[in-house]
Amino acid sequence: MQTQRLGFIGLGEDTVSACLSMLKIIDGRSSVHWSQATPAMADVLMVSSLQEAQTSQDDLSQKPCIVIYPSSEEKPASAFALPHPFRVMQLLDVLDEVLRSLDTSSSHAEHNREVSESEGNSSLPSVDFCASLYRVINNKGSTELYSSQSPEGLLLVKPGSHRFYARPALLHALSAGPVSFSPLSPSSEPVSEGMVPRPLFELAWLTGANHCNDLLPWLDEDSHFKLSRWPSAAALNKSRQLLSLCALMTRRALTLSELKTLSHCDDKALYHFINACEISGLLVSQVRPPSAIAPSVQAGAEHHRLGGMIKGLRTRLGLS
């Protein structure tokens, strides 16, 4: 596998550290291996938006440059840009874009051709269904309709209207257990008679359920996880553990072990939840350097001042 060197200019230690952790995660998922180098030795630069003007004036200006800008500000007029803080998949996307522009080797060009054939404009190197669903849901509107084949029948996904379509036999199979799908690809196939519309979160949820033994491969177990908003209540199936996870994770980023302690979820339920939220585009994972880690959650934190009252109310209403 070819190696590409990434140099950092003007970025904080925590950003560089987070980025290096993400590079480890995506190692094997990108078509090249990424390593750190000094800016002079690097093939690609990652530059703070504050330093961009200076970099463009010196000897480094010939190198592809990914500008890191605060997410609160407008995207700079640069070919490659990433809002800070960024996520693993965003980093992977921009690195792939850079690779395409470099067109460094015939093997990479070949790889692009294959991906292009299978996924249209999509640049995801992985051909995993979860990853393709993640991309389709999170890049709504780029294509109107996507399809995937399975032994149980055709699956159509319309991200713009938050729906997917399948025949009842496939829906039944999906609810019953894992179904093997090909990656989603742009489609012009019409929604045929007999296909039932279902909400897209349901597909994300069921797909996440098929990956409940561990986290999705691009997620890092050591990350802190947060939700960008509440998932659909219908997906939560009135489960207190899941409601509790949502309430906790919309307030602060927590590690897997903190989430287990606070929500009393087992590993399977937690992985299912995290994976489903990731596919739905609701998960924010933050890889933090040790110095930035917040004080860990204390055991027994649930014994708060309203604990007795809440327990009594749950008992009284039959919610226990």
């Binding site: 409601l243 949502c246 309430a247 906790l248 307030r251 917040a294 708060h304 001042r305 309203l306």
Partner: peptide, 21 residues
């Protein structure tokens, strides 16, 4: 209605835990 109450209780608990932290 019970789902609304249960969801609210989870929110209150999470709030309390955050305050404790």
């Amino acid at each position: 209605v019970l789902l609304l109450v249960e969801t609210l209780l989870c929110q209150i608990e999470a709030n309390e835990m955050e305050l404790m932290q």
